[in-house]
Amino acid sequence: MKEIMAVIRMNKMNQTKKALADAGIPAFVAREGYGRGKGLVNQAVLDGAAAGNEEAIALLGTKGRLYPKRIISIVVPDDQVKEAVDALISVNKTGQAGDGKIFVMPVSDSVRVRTGEAGEAAIV
């Protein structure tokens, strides 16, 4: 089993839900988050702004902002990872900075609370 964690744009949530459902992956957890990519910030400007330098604060503008994102967590059997990742990419890729990130991590076990089923039986 794998957990797929995706950080996506807020305005892509409905398209993402549909793409995952169409790929046979209707179950996931989503939450709000805030973040920014590494390419949006000049560390020297951030350091200057933190030190109270007014020029650095003016240069910072909106580049130091944290942008609202959605964080999606999906647990799937190993054989569904590619389908899930492809579905996420298909609707979230615009070619612009801020499209998001996808992380794939191992899951050692899962248990369905209602029935006590364990392993892949708990997620399918």
Rank of each mutant, 00 (worst) to 15 (best):
T62V: 13
R9W: 10
I123E: 01
D79T: 14
K63P: 00
V29Y: 13
V85M: 12
M105V: 08
D99L: 04
S108G: 02
R65F: 10
A121K: 12
G116M: 06
N11D: 14
D22I: 00
A51N: 09
E55R: 06
D78H: 05
G95T: 06
V85P: 06
M5Y: 01
A30K: 11
I89V: 15
M13V: 14
E32Q: 14
N42S: 09
F28T: 04
G119D: 01
A27R: 11
A19D: 00
E120A: 10
S90C: 02
I102Y: 09
A30F: 11
K18D: 02
N42I: 02
P26N: 08
I57A: 14
K93G: 04
V104F: 05
R70A: 09
N92R: 04
V124Q: 08
V107K: 03
K18W: 01
V7N: 09
M10D: 15
V29I: 10
A58C: 01
T62C: 02
R65P: 01
N42H: 10
T94M: 12
V104E: 14
K101E: 14
Y34D: 00
G98E: 02
G39Y: 15
N14G: 00
N53M: 06
S108P: 02
T115W: 04
A49G: 05
M10A: 08
A51T: 04
I89G: 00
N14Y: 07
R9N: 10
Q80D: 09
A49C: 04
G24N: 04
A56Y: 03
M13F: 13
T94W: 15
K69F: 07
A122N: 05
S90K: 04
K18L: 03
S90W: 00
Q96A: 11
I74S: 06
V104T: 14
V76Y: 09
R31A: 05
P68N: 08
G24I: 01
A87C: 09
E83V: 04
Q80E: 10
I71P: 08
M105C: 06
G52D: 08
P77E: 07
L59V: 01
A44S: 11
Q43A: 14
T16F: 02
A58L: 04
G35Q: 13
D86A: 15
G100T: 03
Q96G: 00
V111K: 07
V104P: 09
K2L: 01
A50K: 01
T16I: 09
F28V: 09
V45A: 09
G98K: 01
L59M: 15
Y67A: 11
L66Q: 11
L66E: 13
V113K: 10
R112N: 14
Q96E: 15
G119V: 06
T115C: 05
S73T: 13
M1F: 05
N11S: 12
A87N: 09
I4K: 13
M1W: 04
G100W: 00
T115Q: 03
R65D: 02
K18N: 04
Q80V: 05
V104C: 08
A122E: 05
K93V: 14
M105D: 07
D47W: 03
G100R: 00
S108N: 07
L46Q: 08
V107M: 06
D109R: 03
V107F: 02
D109N: 14
I74P: 04
S110P: 01
E83Q: 13
G116H: 07
D99N: 07
A121G: 15
T94R: 05
A23I: 08
T94H: 12
Q80A: 13
M105G: 03
P106S: 08
V7H: 10
